[in-house]
């Protein structure tokens, strides 16, 4: 049975706890054991914290990686930001003894050491690669007929020179995962575009972020989508909180919630009351 250290991040546990809950339930029924990565912190956020201080970002990320290393487990994340941050940090440290030595000087202050062995995985890619589409199909008890706009976000696939998950210009992994539930992935223009929230743009330059969000929503509606399925609580937040102001009402579901529904999970365990855009199942 696959076993991972479960990295929560910030937005899922503190804004959309239903994403955390759905992930726990879905993984359990698929035979993926999640062990809490106790005492972890923010990844820290790649677009803001790394942009302020690369050194502090790497030290805090290394602490998270070291916590998992001590448990002798690889990390699974449910957020593109966490995945981007921890994957990039692991890439920098696991392959570069000089960077590792530098970061260990800082970790030594709290009696910790990172040896450079933790691998970082994303929930969506774990479903796809560890479980596989056929087995996922067999786990569906409540086939869905939703018309879905799949939203990959940015840091799941990019930079693709390190992450060989899928083609970032024309990806299919998430579409395959969504279609395995019976739902239909609708085509659209600029499908691989950013939601607008990343890089600190949402917090400091919110109207710029909203313009990107609107472009995405226009494309989704034009393509005939009725739901958005994301793999990142930050994209999730950007759409769910932005739609009202922009005049849209496509329910926003994290992939874990979509699978929760398709696997017959109790509706109240999906945490949909935290959503701004009402979700009708």
């Amino acid at each position: 049975m696959a076993k991972y250290a479960f990295f929560l991040g910030c937005i899922a546990p503190l804004r959309y706890p239903g994403i955390e809950k759905s992930t726990r339930v879905v993984c359990e029924s698929l035979g993926i054991e999640l062990v809490d990565l106790t005492d972890a912190s923010c990844c820290p956020a790649p677009g803001v914290i790394r942009a302020f201080s690369r050194k502090a970002w790497l030290a805090a990320a290394a602490r998270n990686l070291a916590l998992a290393e001590k448990m002798e487990l690889d990390i699974v994340t449910i957020c593109n930001g966490c995945f981007g941050s921890l994957f990039d940090a692991a890439h920098e440290l696991n392959n570069n003894p000089e960077n590792l030595a530098e970061v260990n000087e800082i970790l030594a202050e709290i009696g910790m050491e990172y040896k450079g062995t933790t691998e970082v995985r994303h929930f969506a890619e774990v479903l796809y690669n560890d479980i596989g589409i056929e087995k996922l199909k067999a786990s569906i008890t409540n086939p869905l007929d939703y018309k879905v706009a799949t939203f990959y976000g940015c840091h799941f696939l990019k930079p693709s020179k390190y992450k060989a998950i899928d083609n970032p210009e024309d990806a299919h992994v998430l579409d395959d995962l969504v279609e395995a539930t019976g739902a239909q992935s609708m085509p659209r223009m600029q499908k691989m575009m950013c939601c607008g929230a990343g890089g600190g743009v949402r917090s400091a330059l919110g109207d710029v972020a909203m313009k990107l969000t609107k472009q995405n929503l226009d494309n989704m509606v034009e393509g005939g989508a009725e739901y958005i399925v994301d793999i990142c609580p930050f994209c999730h937040l950007q759409f769910d909180t932005g739609e009202g102001e922009l005049g849209f009402k496509l329910p926003v579901l994290h992939l874990s919630q979509l699978y929760g529904i398709a696997m017959g999970m109790n509706a109240k365990d999906l945490g949909l009351d935290a959503h701004k855009v009402p979700v009708t199942l």
Binding site: P46, K158, C194, G196, A209
Partner: peptide, 20 residues
């Protein structure tokens, strides 16, 4: 100005840069 902070770090540019 705000230009330096308008980037969302989406990597669309980097993926396509012919000079990597």
């Amino acid at each position: 100005g705000e230009d330096l902070w308008d980037c969302t770090t989406c990597y669309a540019c980097e993926e396509r840069c012919p000079r990597t």
